[in-house]
C-alpha cells in the first residue's frame, strides 16, 4: 500500500511518484532518543531518596482523594507521637495555607507548597521544600500530596513509602476505580470507621478490591475521631523507621 495516499495499487494517476527513495521526510535526520518521559522527575526523586536515606529520614507520601482525612490523620499522629518522634511536614494544595496552619498549630515544622493549577506534587517541588526546611537526621517527613487519586500516582517524589488513605464515606470500589494509586502504594488506611454504622460502605468488599489491585498492600482501619486503630498505624510507622531509630 502507498503510505502517502493510502491507495492499494500503483497503477492509477498520482501526483506523487511511487519511487520512495528520497521522497519522504525531505532529508530529515533521525535521532534515537530512547528516554523515559518522566526521566527528569525520576532523577530528582532518586536524588531526594538518596538525601533521605543518608539522613535516615523516613519520607511518607500521603495520597488520597480530597476529604478522606489526610490532614486530620496527620494532626492526630503528630500530637500523639510528639514526644517520641521527630517529624516535619510538607503540605501540597492547589491554593491556601489552611492545611499548613493546622499542622503548624500542632507545633510541627511545616512547609506549604501551592501548586496553583497543578494537580500533583513532583520531585522538584519536594526538593526545594526540603532544602528550605532542612529536616533533622533520624526523623519522619510526611508529605501530604494534593487531594487527587489520579495524577499523583505517576510522580515519584523519592518517598520511602506511599500511603493511600480512603474513607468509609467514599465508595468501596475506589481501589478498582483508581487502580494506579492503590497499585503503587504500600499501605492503605481506611479512615472514619466510626461512621460505618451510618453509611452503606462494605468494608470487606473494599479490602477485597484493594487486594485485587495490589495483593501486597497492607491495610489498617482507623478512626481519627475515636482514635480506634491508630495504635496499629503508629506501630506500622515505627516498623518502617530503620530499627525504630526515628521513634524512641
Amino acid at each position: 500500500m502507498c503510505a502517502t495516499c493510502g491507495c492499494g495499487t500503483a497503477d492509477h494517476d498520482h501526483h506523487h511518484s511511487h519511487d520512495h527513495f528520497g521522497e519522504h521526510s525531505s532529508g530529515g535526520v533521525k535521532i534515537d532518543v530512547e528516554q523515559d518521559i518522566l526521566y527528569q522527575n525520576n532523577l530528582l526523586a532518586q536524588r531526594n531518596r538518596g538525601y533521605f536515606e543518608a539522613k535516615n529520614i523516613l519520607a511518607i507520601n500521603l495520597v488520597s482523594s480530597p476529604g478522606s482525612g489526610k490532614t486530620t490523620l496527620l494532626e492526630k499522629t503528630l500530637l500523639d507521637l510528639k514526644d517520641s518522634m521527630k517529624s516535619c511536614v510538607i503540605e501540597g494544595d492547589q491554593q491556601t495555607s489552611h492545611d499548613a496552619d493546622r499542622i503548624h498549630a500542632t507545633g510541627t515544622k511545616v512547609v506549604q507548597i501551592n501548586t496553583g493549577k497543578g494537580c500533583h506534587l513532583d520531585a522538584h517541588m519536594v526538593l526545594h521544600a526540603v532544602q528550605g526546611m532542612k529536616p533533622e537526621n533520624e526523623s519522619v517527613l510526611f508529605i501530604e500530596n494534593v487531594g487527587n487519586l489520579v495524577c499523583p500516582a505517576m510522580f515519584d517524589l523519592g518517598e520511602s513509602e506511599r500511603v493511600v488513605v480512603m474513607s468509609v464515606t467514599e465508595g468501596e470500589d475506589k481501589p478498582v476505580k483508581y487502580p494506579d494509586m492503590f497499585h503503587s502504594s504500600t499501605l492503605c488506611i481506611i479512615n472514619k470507621t466510626d461512621l460505618l454504622p451510618y453509611v452503606p460502605f462494605n468494608l470487606e468488599k473494599a479490602k477485597e478490591y484493594a487486594r485485587q489491585v495490589n495483593p501486597k498492600l497492607e491495610i489498617i482501619e482507623v478512626s481519627c475521631t475515636t482514635g480506634e486503630g491508630l495504635d496499629k498505624w503508629y506501630q506500622w510507622l515505627e516498623s518502617k523507621t530503620l530499627a525504630g531509630s526515628a521513634i524512641t
Partner: peptide, 9 residues
C-alpha cells in the same frame, strides 16, 4: 512512557 526517536532537520 518513552520518547523513542525524533526526525529533525
Amino acid at each position: 512512557l518513552r520518547v523513542r526517536s525524533l526526525i529533525v532537520v
